[in-house]
Design a protein around this nucleic acid. Structure first.
Lengths: 151, 151
DNA sequence: AATGAAAATGATAATTGTTTTCATATAGAT
DNA sequence: ATCTATATGAAAACAATTATCATTTTCATT
């Protein structure tokens, strides 16, 4: 893996190395807007390189989360899901409505500029006050979807 | 269990019955501001009534979440945590900073009136647009705590 | 290009939080 | 007091995730 890419330095700064599997996983996340489960991602990686193990996928996703490149979501179905954090800064920025009964997820992107400004200010405040370097934030709205409201 | 309490109707409307175990669990949640894990809660219940099973605790917490009485949190340590949703409306209202590396949780309550208004408006909007009855919302801020920033 | 130490990987086993099952007990309306 | 839907407990089943450890790979330095 000789050629450098834009994320090469990001990995280096994190004391991590660039590998083809990691690049593949980033590509997969980059190519979709769905919330892929670890197994979803594993299957796709496996298509490209059948020798890749599930453990590596877990480890890579964990690393990406720590680097702030991926966002991990845990809804109610017992499996972690991931999406590229980079996406969220642009067009794909969204939050989630979660039905606490049937676990249906609806993406919600009708946020306001007001909200963006608010969170931007909050991040700065939290860094100062708690010395906590925020890389991402996620809001979940919990409730009952139309179907489940009628028992 | 003959005597009615304020939550009796809430249960009834949900097609659920009031039991002493459920009351105990509500009391436990009511008596703390910590984010208790299921096992934490089970241990406390067990002190009061050793015959209570872990399964019932899981089932009760699930029920309370669906009723909107409890909020379920999943941070990064692999166990679900709960707190009374009622508390969040008053003094105890807060969000969480989660260190993606060491999984430290810091409660954050320096929110603004601006934020409260924003979420109130959002709830109304979401009900109209998606017919989704919001019972609660949660914001997680993810990042690196002071220690983990210095590797 | 060869080297070597640190980091990444894969296969498997182990772990553990959570759910299912099913027979029994209980709540609460009648 | 009776009866039916609901709740419960114990144990087994389940499934996502993590730990282990020997092997391979990256990449900075020769």
């Amino acid at each position: 893996m000789k050629n450098k890419c834009w994320w090469h330095d990001k990995f280096y700064n994190f004391g991590a190395r660039m590998t083809s599997t990691r690049r593949t996983i980033i590509d997969i996340l980059h190519s979709t807007r769905e919330h892929l489960s670890v197994e979803d991602i594993f299957k796709k990686v496996h298509e490209m390189n059948p020798s890749t193990g599930l453990t590596t996928v877990y480890r890579t996703l964990d690393l990406l989360e720590q680097m702030g490149m991926a966002q991990k979501y845990i809804f109610g179905d017992g499996k972690a899901r991931y999406e590229l954090a980079i996406n969220r800064k642009g067009k794909g920025y969204h939050h989630h409505l979660v039905c606490v009964k049937c676990k249906t997820i609806i993406d919600y992107s009708d946020f306001t500029n007001n909200e963006i400004e608010l969170f931007k200010a909050t991040k700065t405040k939290l860094l100062k006050k708690y010395n906590f370097k925020i890389v991402n934030h996620v809001t979940y709205f919990y409730g009952l979807c139309g179907k489940c409201q009628n028992l």
